[in-house]
């Protein structure tokens, strides 16, 4: 990761950025058993913006946590790029997260003791790598934070904080960024800004993003939307409009009788 040329992933588009094969996730046992994921097979392509949607309890967050190596699977295989996530030790998972994965959370999750700039550079600092100055400048300008770099999180608005979180995820140029309801805590204008920014980083820089959301409008920014219900993939749309997503969601709700 030394060049400013962004999308080295595009050249290797033949391998998926993340893949789940026959994944089951079961909590508890006996009567209290809850099946969160049942036999999920999904491939998420490089350089694309994929949204995972589904009603509450559909298992969409569980799927993302399993894909990102934050949670273990009961059965099946998960891989990121060419790395098999399943069966990695804690040290292996730490290295995976350090080198290949970026996160954006609903609650921003910035360290209050660090400035915006320090928060953005934290993953590189933890990995002991120097930032690429050209790419760093690009990221800062894209998120529009140049005049806010020395502010503490408590001095930033929610939208600005989430943009810091996006920059933090992007600056290390991970193989894949997982975004967990990134607009869930934002007003619609700030949310739109963040989504536009994510869209741009996919289109212009070839970044792979997997986003969990229950907001149809947010999903409409994605190249592809995967729908989950009761722990299984039930539908899929490509480059959908917000209305198309909404209609699919309504049909899923009806199917669930909710």
């Amino acid at each position: 990761m030394t060049t400013a040329a962004p999308p080295q992933s595009r050249q290797r588009a033949e391998t998926a950025a993340a893949r789940a094969a026959g994944v089951w996730k079961v909590y508890g046992s006996g009567e209290a058993q809850v099946v969160a994921l049942r036999d999920v097979d999904v491939e998420l392509e490089r350089g694309r913006f994929t949204a995972i949607m589904g009603p509450s309890g559909s298992g969409k967050s569980t799927l993302m946590h399993c894909l990102a190596g934050l949670d273990s699977v009961t059965r099946g295989q998960v891989s990121i790029g060419e790395t098999a996530v399943t069966g990695l030790s804690d040290a292996g998972l730490t290295k995976l997260r350090r080198d290949k994965v970026g996160f954006i959370f609903q609650q921003f999750n910035l360290l209050p003791t660090l400035s915006a700039e320090e928060n953005i550079l934290l993953p590189l600092a933890i990995a002991g790598r120097r930032p690429d100055p050209a790419w760093y400048a690009t990221v800062i300008d894209t998120v529009g934070l140049r005049d806010r770099l020395h502010h503490r999180p408590s001095q930033l608005s929610g939208g600005q904080q989430q943009r810091v979180a996006c920059a933090r995820a992007l600056v290390a140029r991970p193989e894949v960024i997982f975004a967990d309801e990134p607009t869930g805590n934002l007003d619609s204008r700030s949310g739109a800004e963040v989504l536009a920014f994510l869209r741009r980083s996919v289109t212009e820089y070839g970044q792979t993003i997997i986003m969990v959301t229950h907001d149809a409008n947010a999903a409409s920014y994605a190249d592809r939307v995967v729908f989950l219900a009761d722990g299984a993939i039930v539908h899929e749309l490509t480059s959908p409009s917000a209305d198309a997503v909404l209609d699919t969601m309504k049909s899923l709700d009806r199917r669930d009788g909710r």
Partner: peptide, 15 residues
């Protein structure tokens, strides 16, 4: 939450 975050972005247990 902060500890979870730094772990999520790659800090090891030793760290």
């Amino acid at each position: 939450r902060e500890l979870g975050l730094v772990r999520a972005i790659g800090l090891s247990r030793g760290g």
